[in-house]
């Protein structure tokens, strides 16, 4: 199949930028996971549906709103009542999940093309993100693995904390270039590296 093109292609500049007096405070990058999939579950069917997810992906989610789990190859988190975002390095996750999930449990929607995945990592990641989003990024309030739905003005974002100093952001593809500019600009103060 044809390669997927990044919406950032002409504006993605690897290297160091901004105020590097104290070294790069964050590392910014676009990830290109093979699959980004929404699993939406009917009310009351969360447990069996998550069991299917476990079968298909090997991911087990802790209970609770916005809870999630992140590994290098696959990540999942709840972002709305009954809704989960699954992100996998492998392509075709939507089809596999759809085949396994009864319509009585929920629906599967492939968003692999529709969302652009950003990663921000580093000691200043919380500081930079706090410039853009009105949510509390402190580890105590936003534990590793957890997911959040929020927005930066017109740009809707789903955010997962994939490490103590690392966040993955999923943004509508059409906004990706504007958001990248915004993210880079916000990171200039602390200095950033694009990988």
């Amino acid at each position: 199949m044809a390669d997927r093109l990044s919406p950032l292609e002409p504006v993605y500049r690897p290297g160091n930028h901004g105020n590097l007096a104290g070294g790069a405070g964050v590392v910014l990058g676009e990830r290109q996971p093979g699959s980004i999939v929404q699993l939406a579950v009917w009310s009351g069917q969360e447990r069996p549906a998550l069991a299917v997810m476990l079968d298909v992906t090997g991911m087990r989610l802790p209970d609770g709103a916005g809870s999630g789990s992140a590994r290098e190859d696959i990540a999942a988190f709840g972002f709305a009542p009954g809704r989960f975002l699954l992100v996998s390095e492998a392509e075709g996750l939507a089809d596999r999940l759809r085949a396994a999930l009864s319509e009585e449990l929920g629906t599967v929607t492939d968003l692999s093309h529709g969302r652009t995945a950003f990663r921000i990592a580093g000691a200043k990641a919380e500081w930079v993100l706090a410039k853009l989003f009105a949510i509390d990024f402190a580890l105590a309030a936003f534990p590793t693995g957890a997911g959040r739905s929020t927005s930066h003005h017109d740009i809707f974002a789903q955010i997962q904390r994939s490490g103590p100093e690392q966040f993955d952001l999923y943004v509508f593809r059409s906004f990706a270039r504007s958001f990248w500019h915004t993210l880079c600009r916000a990171a200039e103060e602390t200095g950033y590296e694009v990988r």
Binding site: F79, A80, P81, R83, R148, S149, T150, S151, F156
Partner: peptide, 8 residues
């Protein structure tokens, strides 16, 4: 509506 969040 939590339109900029979970949309509920």
């Amino acid at each position: 509506q939590h339109s900029g969040g979970c949309r509920a």
